[in-house]
Design a protein around this nucleic acid. Sequence first.
DNA 1: TGACAATATGAACATATTATGAAGTTTTTC
DNA 2: GAAAAACTTCATAATATGTTCATATTGTCA
Lengths: 225, 225
Amino acid sequence: MENSLILIVEDEPKLAQLLREYLEQANFRTHVIGSGLDVVPWVESNIPALILLDIMLPGKDGMAICREIRTFSQVPIIMVTARVEEIDRLLGLELGADDYICKPFSPREAVARVKAVLRRVRLQESGGLEQDVFHIDSEKYQASYHGRQLGLTVVEFRLLRKLLSRRGKVFSRDQLLDQLYDDHRIVNQRTIDTHVKNLRKKLEEIAPGENAIRAVYGVGYKIDI
Amino acid sequence: MENSLILIVEDEPKLAQLLREYLEQANFRTHVIGSGLDVVPWVESNIPALILLDIMLPGKDGMAICREIRTFSQVPIIMVTARVEEIDRLLGLELGADDYICKPFSPREAVARVKAVLRRVRLQESGGLEQDVFHIDSEKYQASYHGRQLGLTVVEFRLLRKLLSRRGKVFSRDQLLDQLYDDHRIVNQRTIDTHVKNLRKKLEEIAPGENAIRAVYGVGYKIDI
DNA sequence: TGACAATATGAACATATTATGAAGTTTTTC
DNA sequence: GAAAAACTTCATAATATGTTCATATTGTCA
């Protein structure tokens, strides 16, 4: 099943070695890079299944690398940060990473995260979740819920798509608004509430009481099923 | 297991001798230094497993020494102070010490603290052989405890995350309040007590009697498991 | 030990956030 | 260009959360 290639970008040799050992014990192949400058060229010519990317690096920092990789590849990336507080900032930047781990972490946890992300990605790749209640067709701008077609407006569709892009993740209203428009118009944050209300109404008609969209007080909305 | 070298920096000979005896009885090796001026050179050429550092010293004070050591080493440091009130000040200075003991202390307590700090540091270095009871996901704003999901509010979540960011470290109420808000609102310090109370209640439901969050009299709170 | 200070806790109080219906705007459709 | 649909804003109700307060309990230190 495994045997996938994991790229470890980490300048601290001891930690890199530790990760390598644990990952290989879990039957992954690994490659370690210690300098930020070498990462992008390597990723371009090799194709790792996942990248563990430390954010503090000599040469070029992890954020820049993540952004650059995202211009040409959708390879799963797990960011490693030194401070918990930093994760908040990173989330705001929308780098496109798939998960975040905070130092110090146990190698066991790291391996678990790697597996979780891979599982998620593979599920998506294998043609959308089989028994998923949601199905999204970005080309046709159509979405279905429990097998039944939802008649969504464009804004509602984009809102739902954004929320579904990361199940469980809490999106701030600002993050959601960004996704809704191509131009950068300024609209009232409360507008989101109204779209959520309308979207909920349509979901409710199909599956009453499921409460797919939940508000997280003081933060934003998430999809929680 | 032990046999680690503990550096005791203490100018009062009687106390130094007492500590030495107790620590050696617990199978540590010790070295005593009575003057502040001799500490840094000694630490540079020897490598203690931990330093017990009195803050009031002839020659050079403990704070300056701690700061200086931190420029070249991450060796665990336990600061020894004469008064509880002082710990508060020390915390604000962010010296990078790992724990604080207040005089007068029982040698037994000192040994316990030394062991606790060493255990913690080793756990971190070795990548944690123990399965962590806490797991937090900043993206989903979800935290689990002993594998079970905690339904935390945002403030509670941030509070827990901050406490967890450095296990064992004591955080003052001010430090904790800073983490709780993006804006710089002014709230009563006692507010933290209430949030801690609520958080404890939720932890208690999962693991009664574990007392994960401890109050440190006159200073603040820490997580100590 | 006794005086004092800090923490714990339940309840009252205050605030902030979300939900919702409706009205006002803009955009699309015919 | 009128009507319909979609979008945004607004006002207010409902609710969740945060804060303070008063008192009991516990810890510290002389």
